[in-house]
Amino acid sequence: MSFEMFLFYAFAFLAVFSAVAMIGFVRHIVAAAMSLVVTMVSLAGIYVLMHAELIAAIQILVYAGAIVVLFLFVIMLLDLRDGGLGPAARGQNLVKAVGVGGTVTIGTLVVASVSGVFSVNPLVESLPEGFGEHRALGIALFTDYALAVELVGLVLLASIVGAVILAKRKID
């Protein structure tokens, strides 16, 4: 097992462990948010292994640095009693959830193996110079995907307006 593989499994274990901790067995909502951060950072590590360095940096910058901090900010604004996690999972819901979850997992694996996506295209070992770094990805973003970037900007603007309206106590 190469060092790369070892890192991948370590990150994968960390991600799954903390994701399960988040929905399953932490006792306080802040701890749940911190487990989410651990998942995000492990995924960023995996992105680096997959030659997507810019995505990894953005992942930490946006998810760990902004989104989860926003969660923590709201959690602290609210005065939460007994951990703030609410009631534990009910048996009926758990059955439904595991049913849906199992279907999704099995469906993914069946579709993947039937369509043979993995065998068609073996991994390219020699990637172009600077693959996945900011320069190449930036050029791709602002040439081939310029329209998508503009649309995402529009979505962000709409969400800013929406968040302000929702959070404001009274619109004068």
Partner: peptide, 10 residues
């Protein structure tokens, strides 16, 4: 799947 389970059960 962990996300789905979390969203459906909590």
């Amino acid at each position: 799947v962990i996300g789905v389970v979390g969203a459906l059960t909590r």
